[in-house]
Design a protein around this nucleic acid. Structure first.
Lengths: 336, 336
DNA sequence: AATCGGTACTTTACCGGTTCACAAACGGCT
DNA sequence: AGCCGTTTGTGAACCGGTAAAGTACCGATT
């Protein structure tokens, strides 16, 4: 079933069919109608590979994620993020081409290939590092892309970002206002851009408030590492009375550790999550969190990407700052 | 950068380059070497679209998921499943084309389009219903696909499945052996094939053991509905002493409800999850579960799909039955 | 009547590979 | 030397679309 069959059936040339199927002026409404009928009768739709070959852009958006596959299943963040992207993509009958990669080098090569072979019409870049090695080659390629991360990290790619620094500061101020003086943070990998930003803001705010000894533990984002970090923090002689986590799965794991150690939440230790997925509302006590509509974040990213592809968008887009959502897991520390 | 540039640089015809890059006999080792060198120097790699056009398979696998986008973020199952698929796909440099759809009709149309336009080389079908409406049109199309679900549901598509009936029976027997007589089940939507199978097996096993009053509550798989179902079960006059859930997020939500109602787990009520994600190990007490390596399940599905695409595979493939993993959330009921 | 502008198509040259029929070169054998 | 079967490589015809140039026709203008 090819364009020629349809053309023959409709009694026109294949050029006419092409024109009709791309909604371009050049055929009369009557003929257009006849062409569509023929296509439907034959069950034909244009071959994507052939289209791509003659230089059209596709409705496929590429996303490569550089984290171990097994870890991803756990992280509510990504699936929620993806589902937000999907929502916008589906509106325009576009799809998401997903690939897990081992390192940024592999990601770069992959995106180059996808772009050169016109498999994708644009890409979403996530998890920026300082001086991210993906930036130069991908910019040189001219691939339309949206970067998820603070504009200072994304090397000129239009970015969609959220003000992690303010949020981290707010988290610390809130806990300090409750009376906490020993506040710890269980963060993501130190190389990761946004973890770094949060870490710096955390430290700065602690200093500003005259609180010292704000320990920070970097982890790989997995629940088990969050549990381990929590255990080690809570076993230390000067144990913190409040802990801020870099995602919610680690916070939930932390809550289980507290329970296992016989510590009350929030009486003995307050816990504050980040990336408030529904998980936070399912624990007991429910988890306070730096709440952040990840789904909407994904939507914003997808929308911005369409803007970039169509050339209507330039510059960065800031989504709302994660806002403190106090629930049961934070409270004043018990009097010594 | 095209095959012609490489051919010119290596001083051969483009046919020779094609032969070399497809590892086919027809050029001497020396020439082959020269061609590769030229390609590397020029940074060339074959254009995928052009390759596909000349009758090759595309290396893109389609997956449409028919659940509300927001729900998906929560469900550890899907992301873990996808990550398993990705692992196998990545081995062969293939990618996953993902799309969330509203209903099965939309999914059918989508897959038809993808297949007709050669966007995908095969598809993965999930969430089978009884007399699933996707089956006839997709079979007629001849699209290579693997179905995830019991062979009785998948209408002739090669299926990858797990023995839900035995697992459900085992769950009931285990709880009965602990001494439970009032066992309830919080299941998925009743229309969904595997939920139906588990429901039937649950009921049959209860009857077989002479236990009646095994209440079952259908839900939409979300944590909140799991919480609501649990609350209503635990408030009933003859409240169950054990509850089996159809996934783990609902079980975790159930645990929070028990805590909130002041009921001890497992003393007052035993909870048993399904689809054992790491979530189960992060609660306190850790959640007993019908454990099931979802990641490996995804791998099996992807591998089977490749078999189907290449024509080497026929028939169904059974992955290991979910096995009971007792942890802290199940125990003998407290004496009345 | 000749010219013009516009619409409605058709024709044809690509896009960047694969494939296959065919030719040249090569080595072994009589 | 002459013949033959292999290996090695070439050239052209595809694959199924898009795009731009070209043609035919029509009503309006000069």
């Amino acid at each position: 079933m090819t364009i020629n069959d349809v053309a023959a059936r409709a009694g026109v040339s294949k050029g006419a069919v092409s024109i009709a199927f791309n909604n371009r002026p050049g055929v009369s409404p009557t003929t257009r109608e006849r062409i569509f009928e023929a296509a439907i009768e034959l069950g034909w739709s244009p071959n994507q590979a052939a289209r791509n070959l003659s230089g059209r852009r596709t409705g496929i958006v590429g996303l490569a994620i550089c984290r171990p596959a097994r870890l991803l299943g756990l992280e509510p963040f990504y699936m929620e993020f993806i589902s937000g992207i999907e929502d916008v993509l589906a509106e325009r009958s576009c799809s998401l081409l997903l690939r897990l990669v081992r390192d940024l080098e592999e990601e770069t090569v992959l995106l180059e290939g996808w772009w050169r072979s016109r498999t994708i019409g644009g890409a979403i870049l996530v998890d920026f590092h300082r001086d991210d090695p993906r930036v130069p080659p991908l910019r040189a390629l001219g691939i339309p892309a949206v970067a998820v991360g603070h504009p200072s990290l994304t090397g000129g790619f239009p970015s969609v970002w959220t003000d992690d620094a303010s949020a981290a500061a707010e988290a610390v101020r809130y806990l300090a206002a409750l009376g906490h003086r020993r506040i710890a943070r269980v963060g993501g990998p130190s190389g990761l851009g946004h973890s770094g930003i949060r870490a710096a803001a955390f430290e700065a705010t602690m200093a500003e408030l005259g609180l010292d000894g704000g320990r920070q533990v970097p982890t790989g984002f997995v629940g088990e590492e969050g549990a381990r970090a929590t255990r080690s923090l809570l076993m230390s002689p000067d144990r913190p009375t409040a802990i801020v986590y870099d995602n919610d799965i680690m916070a939930v794991a932390g809550a289980a550790v507290a329970a296992e150690m016989g510590l009350g939440v929030p009486d003995d230790v307050s816990l504050l999550a980040w990336d408030d997925s529904q998980l936070c509302r399912l624990t007991h006590p429910p988890m306070s969190a730096m709440s952040h509509d990840v789904h909407r974040f994904g939507e914003a990213v997808a929308r911005t990407l369409f803007g970039v592809i169509e050339g209507t968008h330039e510059g960065d887009f800031q989504v709302p700052t994660p806002s403190l959502t106090p629930r049961g897991s934070t409270g004043p520390p018990r009097r010594a």
